[in-house]
Simulated scan of single mutants.
Amino acid sequence: MAKIDNIDRHILRELQQNARMSNLELAERVNLSATPCARRVKQLEDAGIIKQHITVLDAEKLGLNLTAMISVTMDRHTADRFEKFEHAAAALPEVMECYVVTGQDSDFLIKVLVRDMRHYEEFLLRRLTKLDGVSGVHTSFVLRQPINKCVLPLQTSA
């Protein structure tokens, strides 16, 4: 775990709310002058704590109306087989998240965004199930998402 102080946590909370704010605005919000604030942000980036600055889009407004959670079972449990699947799944634009899981009958859980059932069927039958090693899938469709957080909880140190 990286060593960060309360000022770093304050910077991270502010940036998670609005990564587009200027360094000057950020510095004012965390009670630093601009140069030390920029230095801290750079250190957080260099340490890999800040992975990237992104813009969060509204999937539905872009026509991606169906979210599917797909459990994927692999034919063999080898590191090579898993790595190949992970690489191939990452290349599919519909795949938003991928987890290696335990405690289920599946090996991977992937979150997929598609336009509709026709798009899902094409994705499933023509691409996902054709990936090397995929021996089974089970899909659950998201009815609604009452909680959607992209802000990590940052506690102040005691």
Rank of each mutant, 00 (worst) to 15 (best):
residue 1 M to S: 13
residue 2 A to T: 12
residue 2 A to F: 08
residue 5 D to L: 05
residue 5 D to C: 01
residue 6 N to C: 01
residue 6 N to T: 06
residue 7 I to L: 10
residue 7 I to N: 07
residue 7 I to A: 04
residue 8 D to R: 09
residue 9 R to C: 12
residue 11 I to W: 05
residue 11 I to F: 08
residue 15 L to F: 06
residue 18 N to F: 10
residue 19 A to I: 09
residue 21 M to I: 14
residue 24 L to T: 13
residue 24 L to Y: 11
residue 26 L to R: 00
residue 26 L to Q: 03
residue 34 A to E: 08
residue 38 A to I: 08
residue 39 R to C: 02
residue 41 V to T: 04
residue 46 D to N: 13
residue 54 I to V: 13
residue 55 T to W: 07
residue 57 L to E: 06
residue 58 D to C: 03
residue 58 D to W: 01
residue 58 D to A: 05
residue 62 L to D: 00
residue 64 L to I: 02
residue 65 N to P: 00
residue 66 L to G: 01
residue 70 I to N: 02
residue 72 V to A: 03
residue 72 V to I: 15
residue 73 T to Q: 15
residue 74 M to F: 11
residue 74 M to P: 07
residue 76 R to N: 09
residue 76 R to Y: 12
residue 79 A to H: 11
residue 80 D to R: 14
residue 83 E to R: 15
residue 85 F to T: 07
residue 86 E to P: 01
residue 87 H to L: 10
residue 88 A to I: 05
residue 91 A to N: 09
residue 93 P to L: 01
residue 96 M to Q: 15
residue 105 D to N: 10
residue 106 S to T: 09
residue 110 I to H: 04
residue 111 K to R: 15
residue 113 L to R: 09
residue 114 V to T: 01
residue 114 V to I: 04
residue 115 R to T: 11
residue 116 D to F: 04
residue 116 D to S: 01
residue 117 M to W: 07
residue 119 H to L: 00
residue 120 Y to H: 10
residue 121 E to Y: 06
residue 122 E to A: 11
residue 124 L to E: 13
residue 125 L to G: 03
residue 129 T to D: 03
residue 129 T to P: 01
residue 130 K to T: 12
residue 130 K to N: 13
residue 135 S to R: 14
residue 135 S to N: 04
residue 135 S to A: 10
residue 135 S to C: 11
residue 136 G to L: 07
residue 138 H to R: 14
residue 139 T to F: 02
residue 140 S to R: 12
residue 141 F to W: 04
residue 143 L to H: 08
residue 154 L to I: 15
